[in-house]
Amino acid sequence: MITQFDKLLPVLIGEGVEFIIVGGAAATAHGSTRLTQDLDIVYRRTKDNIALLVRALRPYSPYLRGAPIGLPFAWDEQTISAGLNFTLITSLGAIDLLGEITGGGTFEALLSDSIPVKIFGLECFCLGLRRLIEVKRAAGRVKDLEVIAELEAILEEQKKI
């Protein structure tokens, strides 16, 4: 299934959800040429923001990605408050809602290292390239080594501009 970034991002921004784009989508924003299938966001874990997040995604039937159909998964504030990170599929595509990330922490911890980006006519926050590299390095996953190499190459190319 194709993740409709042009619909998913405006849905979140339009509802006023506070979030930061991280992961592969952040890499794309910085110029990565790699294919990413989902939208990873770190969302603010406040009561109000969780309510906004729930309201924004409700029309798109969020459900646990890869889980058998029919599990008792309720998309509401209580579920989000009780959990932290959610790997979801919606009718607009795949989205990972992250309360915090390895090496980067929470929304509040990442915000000062985030940059505003204008996309699909709206503005949102995206994790800055240097911090994105730091977070990927901190995660220490073998599969990220090639990603880190490309992100560092982007950083080097940006310096030449």
């Binding site: 970034f5 110029g31 294919l35």
Partner: peptide, 11 residues
């Protein structure tokens, strides 16, 4: 940035 996401969706 928008064009980068449009390219990603095309990919």
């Amino acid at each position: 940035v928008q064009e980068r996401f449009e390219n990603l969706m095309a990919l």
